[in-house]
Design a protein around this nucleic acid. Structure first.
Length: 150
DNA sequence: GCCAACGTTGGC
DNA sequence: GCCAACGTTGGC
């Protein structure tokens, strides 16, 4: 079992949205590094920190879990979709997604500021300068360290 | 809204 | 294969 962190802009899709729909296909990822994790590494039952980005208080707001392994993101083949990619075809899909299932909200937001300030967490990709990946792995130890802050 | 830090694209 | 130009992310 592995741990992950996935970013979402709450204006577009928040933890409350996930709580309401229960399961959501995590589509629209158009970055190869993130794609490889979705396609090759995620397993059903993996635990996910749900992170709010681009908002007043960026931070971890909830927990989700991976509900499917990676499968083709066919929104890439829809010309009307926001993340349409004409180079992705049904025969040779370029982009993948997984389904993500709501587990629970955290009792409070563990803010990015707080994560940055924590000396045991200086290694996590999230707090490193300039890291814009929307999906990233979290080491088991860091998962527990972060949850202990809740 | 600004802008630093990236990733991608495409000319050469 | 290099690299400048461009687009995007996301904190602030």
């Amino acid at each position: 079992m592995q741990y992950w962190l996935m970013k979402s802009e709450p204006d577009a899709f928040s933890i409350d949205d996930l709580a309401r729909v229960e399961i959501e296909p995590w589509d629209g990822v158009r970055n190869y590094q993130a794609r490889n994790m979705l396609r090759d590494q995620m397993q059903i039952g993996d635990q996910v920190f749900f992170y709010h980005s681009n908002c007043e208080i960026p931070g971890i707001v909830g927990i989700a879990e991976i509900a499917t392994t990676g499968y083709p993101d066919d929104t890439a083949q829809n010309p009307d979709a926001k993340y349409y990619d004409p180079k992705s075809t049904a025969e040779n899909p370029r982009w993948y997604r997984v389904d993500v299932k709501f587990v629970r909200k955290l009792k409070r937001t563990i803010s990015l500021n707080e994560l940055k300030a924590n000396p045991t967490l200086t290694e996590i990709p999230l707090v490193r300068k300039g890291n814009r990946l929307s999906v990233m792995p979290v080491a088991a130890q860091h998962w527990h360290d972060i949850l202990a802050l809740e």
